[in-house]
Design a binder for these strands. Structure first.
Length: 281
DNA sequence: AGTGTATCCTGCAGGC
DNA sequence: TGCCTGCAGGATACAC
């Protein structure tokens, strides 16, 4: 579910509230979202203080004061919710309790951080700073990093005959793009999703990087896309859904030329495109 | 180096 | 109403 804009939204919210809190309780409800036994996870985190909250690709990186970090990947349906202390203890007005709670952190000063995940494809992993550096190095560059040029992108695409949509979804090639924004970026760039990555020339690389950056930036401003499950750290829905131009719009008119948007499936996932704006070679 | 398939898991929409 | 199938923002492991 959550791609870069959704994760960035959650990270920005948590960065304002979490730092300075200390973990004083860890309640593991569904152990299968951890990569280690619940007891060792709990034992390692109890007493840790939160220094900062950042993002790498689709990962939420919570840096702890003991040179460790907690890395959260939301999978398809994960939610990381910050629950501030209730004004009146016991009273929970409109806010419904999140369903499918998998883990609860009790924090000091009084607050809690909830992890809920319907399908439990998400995971929470602990790393030392050095371990995380190594993990992070496996991921491709950040698309919004201004140091990344379209020429860098072209060189990374050059060895790959993989369809560009699949290439964009590969987190080791470029970090943070998922299925929604892959379709959207390719639509904006006018590139067919099945074009081999290595077939994109300099001009197309530039349009693609532009398309990726524009759609991710626009989606961040709207606080992400909620199709169904995604919620921000405050439990709100993202507002980018109505701005989607291709994804999920099979049969609807292309916003540029009115041709019907088509859906094709490859590598087991849907891709949406305009057959007239995004020509197949 | 690719692709297709399966896996983890739950919920929902649509067809009958 | 109930049952079935297919589909879903991700990541990974497998055989070919």
């Amino acid at each position: 579910m959550p791609e870069l804009p959704e994760v960035e939204t959650v990270v920005r919210q948590l960065a304002e509230t979490l730092p300075g809190h200390r973990i004083r309780g860890v309640d593991v409800i569904h152990a299968d979202i951890l990569k280690e036994p619940p007891d060792s996870f709990r034992g390692a985190l109890l007493g840790s203080s939160i220094d900062s909250v950042g993002r790498r690709g689709k990962n939420i990186v919570i840096t702890l004061s003991d040179s460790h970090c907690l890395v959260v990947n939301l999978g398809m349906t994960g939610k990381l919710l910050f629950a501030p202390p209730l004004p009146v203890p016991g009273a929970r007005p409109d806010e419904e309790e999140p369903s499918h709670l998998a883990l609860i952190f009790a924090l000091e000063p009084q607050a809690s951080l909830l992890y809920a995940d319907t399908r439990r494809f998400g995971c929470l992993r602990r790393f030392t700073s050095a371990e995380w550096q190594r993990e992070s190095a496996r991921l491709g560059p950040e698309p919004l990093d201004q140091g990344l040029t379209s020429e860098d992108l072209r060189q990374r695409m050059a060895p790959s005959r993989s369809p560009i949509r699949s290439w964009l979804l590969d987190q080791t090639k470029i970090a943070g793009v998922g299925n929604i924004y892959a379709s959207e970026a390719l639509f904006r760039a006018g590139i067919h999703p099945k074009r081999p990555a290595q077939s994109l020339g300099p001009r197309e690389s530039a349009s693609l990087l532009g398309g990726v950056r524009d759609v991710l930036s626009d989606a961040i401003l709207a606080r992400g896309t909620t199709l169904r499950d995604y919620r921000t750290a405050t439990g709100d829905r993202g507002g980018f859904g109505p701005s989607l131009q291709a994804y999920g719009r099979e049969g609807a008119p292309c916003p540029r030329c009115s041709t019907h948007i088509e859906r094709i499936v490859f590598a087991n996932r849907s891709a949406f495109f305009c057959p007239s704006c995004q020509l197949n070679p």
